[in-house]
């Protein structure tokens, strides 16, 4: 019998959807191998109630490492706490979200334990107690199915791909105060800026509204912002490489090769023709909508739904229709 450990990320004491997805994947694997799913949360004081909420995602126990110096992520601080906790139990596998934090921390944990890491997993099946994972390679132009022959099996899970379960289980919360000595850190966070209240990053949003050259001018982004606003709070703006290179939009919004890879539930590509590099960054989205005046634009070959037409006419209509739909809810 072995358990599965989910590393749970908190930001300002809140636990987001990506972390809950990881707990649910851990719970799925644990049930297949006859163990239970356990979560580990690191942060400042006062995390207990947020941690208890992980029961509905499938965790039967959660360890909360509380220390002022852990409230914000620093790899030097987090690495030893994760390693020590992992060694304290009998864990077959360890899972992280493939967020910025997960992608920074998981390779360090793996190297410290001398085990490999499977990054950015989008699928899992279990055969005879052995997890087989799927992940996109070559920018989503192929998928590789792999197993890891060494324990603990460590993977990062791509956000928005796996569902959060709906469990009705009891959760055991254990709190501990780890030894943390900032004096020994060789990396120090000096400042964080631009993390606007309620802002959703394009790589984590449930819905992405992306704009390209077809918008003709950076002053025209209002039509995208209006659509974003009616869809809901978990919606972010994205951009094609062309408009980022032109300086119309910040690099943080760029979707595709050399930008971010996204897999939202809904991706709306507006005035984007669909260069290979762009498709690479969004092809694992669940539902893809394209709006473009060119019926031969490559983006339509990737789209589940599309409108061929002038985006400046289509978008305001779409915004109104969604607003009407939401007002009926």
């Amino acid at each position: 019998m072995a358990d599965v450990l989910a590393f749970v990320e908190q930001r300002e004491g809140q636990i987001g959807g990506g972390a809950r997805e990881v707990v649910s994947v851990a719970a799925q694997l644990a049930s297949e191998i006859g163990g239970s799913a356990s979560a580990l949360v690191l942060g400042g004081p006062g995390l207990t109630s947020a941690a208890e909420g992980l029961s509905t995602a499938g965790a039967t126990s959660v360890a909360v490492a509380e220390h002022e110096a852990l409230s914000e992520y620093n790899p030097e601080a987090y690495l030893p706490v994760v390693i020590n906790h992992l060694r304290s139990g009998n864990f077959k596998a360890l899972m992280f979200s493939a967020s910025s934090l997960g992608k920074d921390l998981a390779p360090r944990v793996a190297a410290a334990l001398d085990v490999p890491l499977g990054s950015d997993v989008t699928g899992m099946e279990v055969q005879d107690g052995v997890p087989l994972f799927t992940r996109p390679v070559y920018s989503g132009k192929a998928f590789t199915k792999f197993s890891i022959d060494v324990d603990p099996v460590i993977v990062t899970i791509r956000p928005n791909v796996f569902p959060v379960g709906d469990y009705d289980s009891k959760i055991q919360v254990s709190k501990f105060i780890p030894d943390v000595d900032p004096e020994t850190w060789c990396v120090r966070v000096i400042e964080r800026k631009g993390v606007a209240e309620g802002a959703v990053d394009v790589s984590e949003a449930a819905v992405v509204v992306s704009g390209g050259r077809g918008l003709k001018d950076p002053a025209n982004w209002g039509v995208l912002e209006e659509l974003r606003d009616v869809i809901g709070p978990d919606t972010a703006l994205g951009a094609s490489r062309a408009v980022v290179d032109a300086g119309w939009r910040p690099h943080a919004e760029q979707v595709g090769q050399t930008g971010k890879t996204v897999a939202p539930k809904l991706y709306i590509a507006v005035g984007i023709s669909g260069a290979v590099q762009h498709l690479a960054g969004m092809r694992t989205s669940q539902t893809i909508v394209a709006v473009n005046r060119d019926p031969d634009a490559p983006i339509f070959s990737m789209a589940d739904y599309g409108i061929v037409g002038d985006l400046f006419e289509v978008l305001p209509r779409m915004t109104e229709a969604i607003k009407a739909l939401k007002s009926e809810d």
């Binding site: 192929a142 998928f143 590789t144 199915k145 792999f146 394209a290 339509f300 409108i307």
Partner: peptide
Amino acid sequence: IHIERLSEPTTRGSGCI
């Protein structure tokens, strides 16, 4: 890491355009 299989992505059904 043991690669079991590499496969091409499942093509999306032709969309409703």
